[in-house]
Amino acid sequence: MRREEVVDISTAVVDEDGWGPLSGLPGHPLMWVLIASELAVFGLALLGYAGARLHDPIAFAAAQDHLDRLAGVINTAVLLTSGFFAALAVDARARGRRGAARLRLTLAAALGVVFLVVKSVEYSRDLAQGFDIDSGGFFTIYFLITGFHALHVVLGIIILAIVLRFDSPGNYETGASFWHMVDLVWIVIFPCLYLLR
């Protein structure tokens, strides 16, 4: 009998929805699993980049000088403004202003397209100079990291489009969380790849 009582006390530790620490975060908890996973991947890739650069800093610096830093700065501004509109959209949807929310989310997605346009201009210049993903050293890593990020921008635009179609407040939060993660990743990879030298 005594043992039963002791065991019973531990049953108090059962959270209602089962998501534990993830339940307090905005949007679907699994989106946060994805966000954490993505940050881990980009983080590891950047650490690999730092390690690879230490093998041959001079060649890396020479290759890096071919990048268009101004285009990178412009794209930073584009993405951050896009994120701003996405955040406004979530806010509007939470207040029940569906029309305003749609407009803002559409603007956010449109700025995502602008980002991709700028990025593809950059890529075409890199390729014209003879640098591609098989160049080795800096450019292989640069194309992998920025390319993988650009794929996330594409995926993000698709997700935002889905949210526009199925526009519950919860979906707004989930979709915007993914979009902000894409923002966040760019904020971290941009200085590492373009500015530090």
Partner: peptide, 19 residues
């Protein structure tokens, strides 16, 4: 996590020659 990643990358740029 972000601070750790950026700190390590910035630190690595303190070395201009191959380690």
């Amino acid at each position: 996590a972000v601070v750790a990643i950026i700190a390590l990358v910035v630190l690595s740029f303190e070395f201009p020659v191959s380690l």
